[in-house]
Amino acid sequence: MNDVANPLAALRSGASSAEAESFAEARVALAVRGATPPHVPMRRVLLTCSGLLVTEVAVMLATDQSLHDTLLPGYLILMVAFALVFCLGAVTVAGFPAGAAAAGLVALEVGNLLPLLAGAALLALVCGVAPGWARVEAWQAAHTKPLTSEQEAAVAQRGLNGDARRGWAPGVRLRNYWRADRVLAAFLVLAFPPSIMAFALWFVGWTATR
């Protein structure tokens, strides 16, 4: 059975550049077919954050701090925790509480906006190379795009050879490609809430004083 020709075994000699590119994409698609998204224990993250928040608020109230000083570190804890989950754990929804917490920080002090935007840019750059996102994208692509007939044949061949553990084509690994579009999108997700909050505060204040 092993002598069955595998269409993805090697690029034929004399192939055009377009064919070579298509061939490389097909091999990557096949290799990542078994990729799974990173599993982040969100329940544990939520419990840890809640514990930290409760402790922080209790300490601040016990030391007779103002509401402003109590909320500031609280928002900071939420923002950092969920921003890290968003960037490293590749969980889209974590961007929501991270952004909301950043908006809360801006509501407390509008001057926080610029440092927050700088932080969002830094985290977005991390998203550009984060391996978690590459795994999620590979997993999603494998679940939304049907294989071509060539890839189906290669999968069948892999089954015949009993090699179902990894990508059929030797040397093909899931690599972290720099994704500039992902960086921009991540920046928007993280930076939009504090920006709209700052704009809303400015606009309402401006119209009230005109």
Binding site: T92, V93, G95, F96, G99, V136, E137, Q140, A141, R179, D181, R182, L184, A185, A186, L188, V189, F192, P193, I196, A200
Partner: peptide
Amino acid sequence: NGVIIYLSLLAGFKRRSYALVP
């Protein structure tokens, strides 16, 4: 409007349609 924009941002991100997010 902020909520509507943000939900669209997240939705585009979730589908990995990064080019659509802006």
